[in-house]
């Protein structure tokens, strides 16, 4: 059993509770102990950074300090959260003044400080491939996916050091994972393109066009389903896919699920939900 400090991100315990529903059982099955970061706060979503970057850094320093108290590396299921935590750690490691400033505030407000020296932050995807091993995942599959699946990574964690041993520009980890889960990954070119989630509420057409581009690419590549490694981007890909299709005048109808869901389904959790998903993907379409 490997232990990680679990950071749910901004929405897994809010609007995207399906992520919380599924990450817990799948981790149990695969021998990953999720240790709660008691009192964790929002990472700022790169929204707070737009108003005050020091404030976002201090909020992340608090999460890092709490995780350091746990004594385990951080895991998250959201690509945005992974990217933001990675950036904060990089800043603290390369800019001692930024770390000192954040720690001054942290110490004053909570009595804690972050060292940011040894702790790492990881997306669930990279933990499964680099740490757990795809052979172990494959052995645990009960309900093979048996679908053509497009993998969506988004841009947030696709940078050197933030995506484990995967290639930031041409990632393949999720495709390898889908294969291990009994699915058929399809290649499409916009799998690391942004869907504009940080501006979902503030920008109109351009975010819808960005969303439609990804969905339409995936559909044209023959995917029956799109799986998102980014919990925030999932809102664009799913809730907004009809609007995106209309704005961009593109065919965008395709079931969109979070990565944690599809893993949990393949590992035998929530078979009723999986059955509904397969029905949608194969008969209804969306």
């Amino acid at each position: 059993m490997v232990k990680y400090s679990y950071y749910p991100g901004n929405v897994a315990r809010q609007s995207s509770f399906e992520v919380e529903d599924t990450i817990q059982p799948l981790c149990k099955t695969l021998g990953i102990k999720l240790v709660e970061i008691v009192g964790y706060n929002s990472d700022g979503g790169n929204i707070i950074k737009q108003g005050n970057k020091d404030l976002q850094l201090a909020l992340n320093a608090r999460n890092i300090a709490l995780a350091e108290k746990n004594g385990h590396p951080i895991i998250t299921a959201c690509a945005s959260a992974q990217g933001i935590l990675h950036d904060a750690l990089e800043t603290f490691r390369t800019d001692p003044i930024a770390l000192a400033s954040a720690n001054t505030v942290l110490s004053k407000t909570s009595g804690m400080t972050a060292t940011a020296d040894e702790i790492t932050t990881n997306h669930l995807l990279h933990v499964l491939v680099d740490e757990i091993g795809l052979d172990k995942v494959e052995d645990a599959v009960i309900n093979p996916l048996n679908m053509d699946v497009a993998c969506y990574y988004g841009p947030h964690m696709q940078k050197k050091g933030a995506c484990g041993g995967d290639d930031p520009w041409n990632p393949t980890y999720m495709e390898q994972l889908i294969k291990a889960l009994g699915g058929r990954p399809v290649e499409y070119k916009s799998k690391t393109s942004s869907v504009g989630n940080p501006s979902l509420l503030s920008l109109g057409d351009s975010v819808m066009k960005m969303t439609a581009r990804v969905l339409n690419d995936a559909k044209r590549a023959g995917a029956q389903l799109i799986v998102s490694a980014c919990t925030l981007s999932h809102a664009n890909l799913d809730s907004y896919q009809g609007k995106a299709g209309r704005v961009a005048n593109m065919d965008t109808n395709i079931p969109a699920v979070n990565l944690t869901e599809i893993i949990a389904f393949a590992l035998g959790h929530f078979p009723d939900r999986f059955a509904q998903l397969k029905t949608r993907a194969m008969i209804i379409g969306s």
Binding site: H234, D238, L277
Partner: peptide, 15 residues
């Protein structure tokens, strides 16, 4: 239709 998709559970597959 954004709100409808949310309410009908599209965002939470099978939820």
């Amino acid at each position: 239709g954004v709100s409808l998709r949310m309410m009908l559970g599209f965002t939470r597959n099978g939820g």
